[in-house]
Amino acid sequence: MATVLIVDDEPSVRDLIRDTLELEDHVVNEAVDGPSALEALRADELPDLVVLDIMMPGMSGLDVLTELRGQPTTKELPVILLTAMSDDATTWAGWSAGANVFLPKPFDPGALLDWIDRVLEGGGEMEPTL
């Protein structure tokens, strides 16, 4: 069982991930945008993993990830990037910002669970594929 922070502005996507993870007994927290995610991650108790959408109003997921990798406490925090944009430039930007996994939408919930397990087991650096 792990604690996962879901960051996505789209409620239906947040609901899907929450339902998927809770059915597997994970604990789920949610943030609707970048600033609220950073706020949640400044708390003493960090989640085990963050599922982060890229396209969000005001502050993109890439900006959030860059901010996290710049902080000592969140520098190693596992992050799975979700995005509906799977072009080369966005994918490369995601890897460059420090994502552990880059998962394009629409994704298979089973695949998401597999990646979460692999990341939490410490084997989760996905080779970038362009």
Binding site: E10, S12, L16, T20, A84, P104, K105, P106, D108, P109
Partner: peptide, 9 residues
């Protein structure tokens, strides 16, 4: 892709 994600998921 955004609405397809919950439909497929």
């Amino acid at each position: 892709r955004t609405p397809i994600t919950p439909i497929r998921g």
